[in-house]
Design a protein around this nucleic acid. Sequence first.
RNA 1: GGGCCGGUAGCUCAGUAGGUAGAGCAUUUGACUUUUAAUCAAAGGGUCGCGGGUUCGAGUCCCGCCCGGCUCACCA
Length: 517
Amino acid sequence: MRAIRENLLSLEDDLLAQRYHRIREIEALGFKPYGHPFDATHTIPQILSEYGTKTAEELDANRIPVRIAGRIHTIRRMGKAGFAHLLQSGEKLQIYVRKDAVPEKAFSLYQILDIGDIIGCEGYLFRTRTGELSVHVEKLYFLAKTLLPMPEKWHGLEDVETRYRQRYLDLIANPDVQKVFVTRAKVIGSLRRQLEARGFIEVETPMMQPLYGGAAARPFITHHNALDIDLYLRIAPELYLKRLVVGGLERVYEINRNFRNEGLSTQHNPEFTMLEFYQAYTDYRGLMDLTGELLRQTAIDATGGTVVRYQEQELDFGTIRRLSMREAVIEFWQGPDRPTMEHLKDPEWLLRHSSKGTPGEALADIFERVAEEHLQQPTIIYDYPVETSPLSKNKPDEPDFVERFEVYIAGMEIGNAYTELNDPQEQRRRFEMQLSMRERGEEEAHQMDEDFLRALSYGMPPTGGEGIGIDRLTMVLTDSRSIRDVILFPLLRPEGPIGIADRLRACGTMESSAETI
RNA sequence: GGGCCGGUAGCUCAGUAGGUAGAGCAUUUGACUUUUAAUCAAAGGGUCGCGGGUUCGAGUCCCGCCCGGCUCACCA
C-alpha cells in the first residue's frame, strides 16, 4: 500500500498521469472524455474564408450561429472568462468563454482543458476589442483528451527526427506541413484528371514480381510461403504495363509505389511513388509535347500558376526547354577545352573523358557530371546512348542512340520517357547485352524476361511510355529540399523502446489501486 | 561506406576555463470577465543519447557505440 502511495506521489509530476487523472474530472462534470460524433456547421477554414472580412457591426447586426470543433492550440484563462485558439486543418480560430454565458459545468470544463484537447463549441461570431474574429461560446463539448503534451506553441516541432517518426505530431504542430501534403494530393489529382481526359485508364499491376525489371536497381526480396517462391518488390511497373498495351489497352497509366533497395538521400527513399503511362501509336516526340502540357497544368493545379518558387529561384513551368544530351554537355561544360559536337561523336574522345567502358556510358557519365546540376529550369534532355537504355527504340539514323528523354527540374531527374522498343528480336539482343553486363559485375543490369519477349512477339503497336517521379515533382512544387518532407512516413531506422504502454498501464494501475486505499 | 554537424527538462534552446545543470514556453498553485507570445506571484520538473576512460572533480576532454541531419560516394 505504501509503495502504491509512493508511486502516486512520484507520478504527480508526470504529465501523463496528471492528464490521465483529469479524465475522471471531465467525467465528473458530465462530459465523456472520448468519442462523441459532432455535427459542425462549419470548419474553421470555412469560417475564416466566409466571415473573415465581416466587420464587428455586421456580425452584431446579424448574428451568425456556429458549431465548430478543433484542437486547443493556446488557452488564456482570466478568472471568470478566457480565450482559446482552436486549430483545424492548420488554421486557427479564437473562442471566447465567459462564465455568465455558458452552463456552470461548461465553465468548469473550460477551466481544466489542456492544450491539445479536442473540443467542440457552439455560439456566435463576433469581433473582440482588438478586432479578432472569434466565437462567443454558449455551449461547450468535449471530444477527445490529449494525454501527452504538445510541442511548443510558437517554434512548433523542430526536431527533424521526431517530425519524421511522429508525423502526426508534425502535422499538429507545423501547419505548413499539412499544406505540403494537400499539394501532393493536388499533384496526383491533377495528373489523374489530365490523363483520364486524354482517354488513359488507370490500372494496377503486380507489386510482387517473380522477375524484376523496367529499371536498373537492386530489389527487395520477399517470400511467399504457400508457393514457396521468392518474389521481388517491383522496381518499376514498366514491363507489365507494356504487356497491357500488347493486349490492346492502348492508353494505360499507373500511379503507385516502386521499391528500390538503394541508399537513402534527400532525393531517394526506398519506396517512392511513380506515375507511368503508355500511349500506343505515339513516340518520344509526342510524349515531349504531352509532358509539357501535363507539367504546366499540374503546376497550375497545385500552386495556382506556372511560375513556382523553389529554393531562391523561380522555376517556369510555362515552357520546357529541349536539349539533346550532347548539346547539354557542350552548353554546360566548365573550363577550357569545351568539346564540339564532333568530339562528342568520337568514341575515343568520350572514353578519354570518362572511366566508363563504352562510349555511350561515357557520354552519359560526362553529361551527369557536367550538365545535370545546371538543369534547374524544367528541361527535356533527349537522345540517350543505347547502353543505358535497354528498353528504348533505336534512333533510325543513329542506332547507337535511342529515342529517349528525361525531364530535369531543379537539378533532379523528374521524368524518363522513350519510344518503346517493340521489336522482340532487338529486345532479346538488349536483354542479352544486359546479361553480359551483369556477368561483368553490374548488379543492376536488367534480367532476361522471357514472358515479356513472348508478349512482344505477339506484336506491340508503336508506343511511347513515360515515368514521372511524383515525390520529386511534389518537392519542386512545394519548395521542399528533402524527399522526406513530401513522404508522410519516410523510412528511418526503427527507434528504441518508447515505453508508453508501461506508462499507460501504470496510470491505470495507480487509479484502480487508489480507489482501494 | 567516408567527411562534417548535432543529441541537455514535455517542446525550443543556452551552458563560460573541467568546479553545485539554466532560460522561455508547457505543467502545478494563486489573482484576473475582450486576451492573443495574455499578464502578475510562487512552485515542481534532468539517465546532459549509451558505455568506457582521464581527473580530486566530466554536460564540457579522450575512445567506442547508438540515433539523426547535411554532404560525397553509390543510385542510368
